[in-house]
């Protein structure tokens, strides 16, 4: 059997399809379509929400820094947190721009390239956020206690305790990477945890890079494949 013969059968199905497919005019009403959203639209809105929340954090940290300018021990952790939030926001705004640049009416290879690059951007942001989490919690503790309750964590817990926590945070990173590489496939009951572990382990990024390579191969002149 040749593919051309099956193509003829496939095309012959068209008349039958006309009879069995019906578009639901109610679902197509403008009101319903306005309310509905696309996957990219939902992603854009969730990133926008993150950006707004981060801007709130940046403003609060700015206020904290200006209020404690004379106390370096509070200013430095606040600057570290501020820098992290600004970096995350810059990455998120980059993602929003990338989403706006995706026009599904453009050629498939072009758009799939953009979609994969966006996916890689998302994975990179998530990876660095997860990796830095154990390190930023000490500055967060110092700033939040001072800012919210007026409690000086240095005085309450002592510098050695804080340094020990920071060192523990540093030690946690390679352990988390090792655990993620070893057990990411065994936590399928929790899709979020599984994804976080795959991101930390680098397998999510690997899969995205494979997809990008596949796209490049598809795009390249066939003789090169």
């Amino acid at each position: 059997m040749e593919l051309e013969e099956l193509k003829a059968i496939w095309e012959g199905q068209n008349d039958k399809l006309d009879a069995i497919i019906r578009l639901n005019s109610q679902a197509l009403q403008k009101a319903k379509l306005v309310k509905a959203d696309t996957a990219l639209g939902r992603l854009y809105r969730s990133i926008l929400l993150e950006v707004i929340l981060n801007i709130g954090g940046i403003v609060l940290l700015g206020w904290f820094i200006s209020s404690n300018l004379a106390q370096v021990r509070f200013v430095i952790p606040a600057i570290v947190l501020d820098a992290c939030l600004i970096a995350v926001n810059a990455a998120l705004i980059g993602q929003m721009t990338a989403i706006k640049d995706i026009d599904y009416g453009a050629p498939i290879v072009t758009i799939q390239h953009k979609v994969e690059l966006l996916r890689i951007q998302r994975i990179e942001t998530m990876k660095w956020t997860l990796v830095f989490c154990p390190l930023v919690w000490v500055p967060l503790l110092i700033v939040s206690f001072q800012g919210l309750f007026g409690v000086d964590v240095y005085a309450v817990f002592g510098v050695p305790y804080l340094l020990a926590n920071f060192a523990f945070g540093l030690a946690v990173i390679p352990i988390a990477v090792w655990i993620s590489k070893r057990f990411a496939g065994r936590v399928s009951r929790s899709p979020f945890l599984e994804r976080a572990m795959r991101v930390i382990a680098g397998s999510e990024l690997g899969a995205a890079m494979d997809s990008l390579a596949e796209l490049t191969r598809f795009e390249a002149p066939a003789s090169e494949n």
Binding site: A19, I20, I21, R22, L23, N24, Q26, A27, L28, K32, A39, L40, R42, L43, V115, E116, R119, R122, P191, R195, S211
Partner: peptide, 22 residues
């Protein structure tokens, strides 16, 4: 199938199916 949106997709209510197939 590639995007993460698939993991959080919502199932369309039956009355809103745009494509009805007999």
């Amino acid at each position: 199938y590639r995007s993460e949106s698939r993991r959080v997709k919502s199932t369309v209510p039956v009355e809103d199916y745009v494509l009805e197939i007999a």
